[in-house]
């Protein structure tokens, strides 16, 4: 147990190849996020600590780290909610290469978005009238369920299948794929279904739902992936969704 008013914080220093946890003492505050703690350490004790953040209000998706073993967005995680006996262990996000300290290389994560057919293909140009899309149509509702994703990578880090199978596209890219399959403005919906049907595709998901349990935006990648499985399965028997 740390002293009263002090947090005992272990922070990962190093990269994917080697490193160790370094301990810091940080003054506890009434209202304090994990990102505040990391920033305090960087500003007062370890100027060379590498970490990443931008918006600090849960919009940009850049601040995710492993906090006491669980992937979380640190800017909106209160220390009071996660500290055990005033202790915090802060490590970089799992299932990604570490550039240095708490900063992971997100490239393999975003490469999967492209791999899942996640790039929007327009059917109209800026000279055409705007496509009328009914907000209450089933397709739009299914697409809307996934579009608030902030690309934080928390679900990617929480997914055991990503950890076990490096080819697996993972929850967030597959959820993106499902929003595009349901977006009537998208010009390559068949190509998305083909992209998620390969050896690393949606069918590798074991439906245990760690992604949904950890998503800070309370999105449901598991449900999106179930939709992809259903659509590709029925599609193989000639049924359109």
């Amino acid at each position: 147990m740390a002293d009263n008013g002090q947090l005992e914080v272990s922070v990962w220093r190093g990269d994917s190849g080697s490193g160790r946890f370094e301990s810091f003492r940080v003054p506890a505050e009434d209202n304090q996020t994990v990102l505040d703690v990391v920033s305090w350490i960087q500003q007062n004790l370890a100027g060379d600590l590498a970490y990443r953040f931008a918006c600090r209000v849960g919009m940009c998706g850049s601040c995710a780290m492993t906090v006491n073993g669980t992937p979380r967005w640190t800017c909106r995680t209160h220390v009071k909610k996660v500290a055990r006996n005033n202790r915090l262990t802060i490590a970089p996000l799992a299932n990604l290469p570490v550039i240095r300290d708490l900063a992971t290389d997100m490239d393999p994560f975003f490469a999967r978005w492209i791999g899942a057919g996640g790039r929007f293909v327009p059917q109209r140009t800026r000279d055409d009238p705007v496509a009328p899309v009914r907000p209450d149509s089933p397709g739009r509702q299914a697409a809307d369920a996934g579009i608030e994703c902030i690309n934080c990578g928390v679900c990617h880090a929480a997914c055991d299948t990503v950890a076990a199978s490096p080819d697996y596209l993972g929850p967030a890219p597959l959820q993106r794929a499902w929003t595009l399959v349901n977006d009537e403005r998208h010009g390559a919906r068949g190509a998305v279904l083909a992209a998620v049907s390969g050896a690393g595709g949606c069918h590798n998901c074991h439906s245990m739902g760690n992604c949904t349990a950890h998503c800070p935006k309370e999105l449901d990648p598991l449900r999106a992936i179930a939709g992809l499985k259903r659509a590709t399965f029925l599609g193989a028997f000639g049924k359109e969704i």
Binding site: S197, G198, K229, F233
Partner: peptide, 12 residues
């Protein structure tokens, strides 16, 4: 390592 064909074969 489970593509659509293998998935269909396993579920059927």
């Amino acid at each position: 390592m489970l593509d659509l064909r293998l998935y269909i074969a396993q579920r059927l």
